[in-house]
Design a protein around this nucleic acid. Structure first.
Lengths: 146, 146
DNA sequence: CTCGTCAGTTGGAAATTCCAACCCGCGCCC
DNA sequence: GGGCGCGGGTTGGAATTTCCAACTGACGAG
């Protein structure tokens, strides 16, 4: 069985494996080199190499040659990769509140000068997401009624 | 090596394994029974049982007895679990845009009556997250300068 | 008495991950 | 020129996880 047809599952097929999002976190923080990503995430080098490859193949990261002789590459986020920042930030906010003990260990700064915190709202009404229940209205192109 | 001290990593330690977020998706959609969750996610039953156990232990889900004789349980989202909805929605938006081919296969309805779509904004300035770069300002309680 | 439902558990095979060690092209230093 | 170190990986084998199908156990329906 393959489960429900759903973009959450599709997204997780690309970025849902063990070290993928942590590697992306590093790239978003400006840490773009293999050794540094390995050290900062704690991933083993072979697995990290595999994950970076699938992220590049999926268009989330791109590999850029920053030095010939010897050939050295770094990893940069594509538009697709940058579009994952809300997910990363959502995980961070949630981890800060419900998992991590003590004060938030890492804090990001937004371009506006303040600390970067996520506010997730319904795009239509502007109410914050999460408090109110939601229901499924379409599945596989077919409306469902309950 | 254990990597950077970070709430993203802490969050992923709880909900980052293969089927955890898909199980949570089902619960959020009102599918609360073991067999249905297994069918809708595609997870094998033993792994699903293990994941549900860790989610309950972590306080993301709670197990509720809905029938004695025979004892039957269902899974409900706690406050902590509901607080993960922005993450789920962020993954869905991203998957819709960058992974899934064709129209969004699943659509959620918000309490306001409209389709539920995520808008992720900086909590201080209200600008959408992701367009502008961010940088790390504190790490492990210590400010960093670059 | 048999079949079906629900919530799992069990056992063994298959796939993944972890870890340490290795490789290769170079630059630096003496 | 010999040795050391860096950056970006690859390799091999052991340890861990996952997958899958079958089974359990308590019921209710026919």
């Amino acid at each position: 069985m393959r489960g429900r047809e759903c973009s959450i599952a599709n997204a997780l097929a690309v970025v849902g494996e063990r070290w993928s999002l942590l590697a992306l976190r590093e790239v978003m923080l400006g840490v773009t080199r293999f050794d540094a990503i390995a050290a900062n995430t704690g991933a083993s080098r072979d697995i990290l190499a595999a994950r970076l490859r699938t992220l590049v193949d999926a268009g989330v990261l791109e590999k850029r040659l920053y030095d010939e002789h010897p050939r050295r590459y770094e990893y940069l986020a594509t538009e697709s990769g940058r579009a994952l920042q809300p997910v990363l930030l959502g995980l961070m906010e949630w981890g800060d509140r419900y998992v991590t003990q003590g004060p938030p260990p890492t804090v990001w700064e937004h371009a506006c000068g303040g600390e970067l915190h996520l506010r997730a709202v319904c795009a239509t009404c502007g109410e914050p997401v999460g408090a109110t229940p939601s229901r499924l209205v379409r599945l596989g192109g077919v409306d469902v009624d309950r």
